[in-house]
Amino acid sequence: MSSDEVNGSAVGAAVDRMAGAVPEPGSAKRDPILVADGVKRSFGGLTAVDVEHLEVQRGTITALIGPNGAGKSTLFNLLTGFDRVDGGEWSFEGRGINGRRGHQVARAGMVRTFQLTKALTRMTVLDNMLLGAPGQTGERMAGAFLRPVWGRQEKVNTEKALELLERFKLIDKRRDMAGALSGGQRKLLEMARALMTDPSMIMLDEPMAGVNPALVQSLLHHITSLRDEGKTVLFVEHDMDVIMGISDWIVVLAQGQVIAEGRPSDIRSNQQVIDAYLGAQDVEGEDQGSGDE
């Protein structure tokens, strides 16, 4: 399998990155970038998320997995301010950000992508990218009339955008409408656009969903290179090959709670995780994936 090489290197390096972390739910990390406590959200009588304690180590790739309906996406929405919690507190880089709205969380440096890709279809690829740049004078209504001022920023931002498009191999598409891109290219665009905001942590909601297998390798490569640049990645994913291959740390959710945490090797042999996957309603392809490894 082609993912083996990614697999080997990542697992080998993971040991240093997660040094000192005990593989148990709610374990403390050496240098956590994100710390969440008692995050709760219920819809009617159903408790979707009830996370007692969760820490995400800075500069790592952390995967969030769990059967369908485990609350992964809900937790994502809560942490990034796209949904309101019933209770709980969390801090990002030492600052409490609970109760902040989505755009405020993004400005704090925690930027997300979406499960259903949100390319702004009737705008060009380059405009999509430029929208990500922070602190633009021209984005204020009065500032919009000061072309000389924002023109300079625009030039700098365009250079940065073109560099990123080059890196994500979208440079030839820069003048095309984003709606004309393929599904995989839209994922790449979304990731590149998120990087325009200079985030310190990037949250990817199912980055591989609906992506042509030929593009998966390139996406994985981009994700690992984000970490190698010192960014923290938290991602939700279903494909076990992918998760085991590139994650430094895995958090398993079931019925809204963290039931296990650990390195890929810990998770693979964790009886609770196997029970959650096989015992629960979800018996899709994803659990066999881990068996194959």
Binding site: F82, R112, K118, G143
Partner: peptide, 19 residues
């Protein structure tokens, strides 16, 4: 202007712009 870019982005998908 960049203001217009944000506004058009909101027309396309406001969650993306918020993110």
């Amino acid at each position: 202007s960049p203001w217009g870019r944000v506004v058009k982005g909101i027309r396309e998908d406001e969650d993306a712009v918020r993110s």
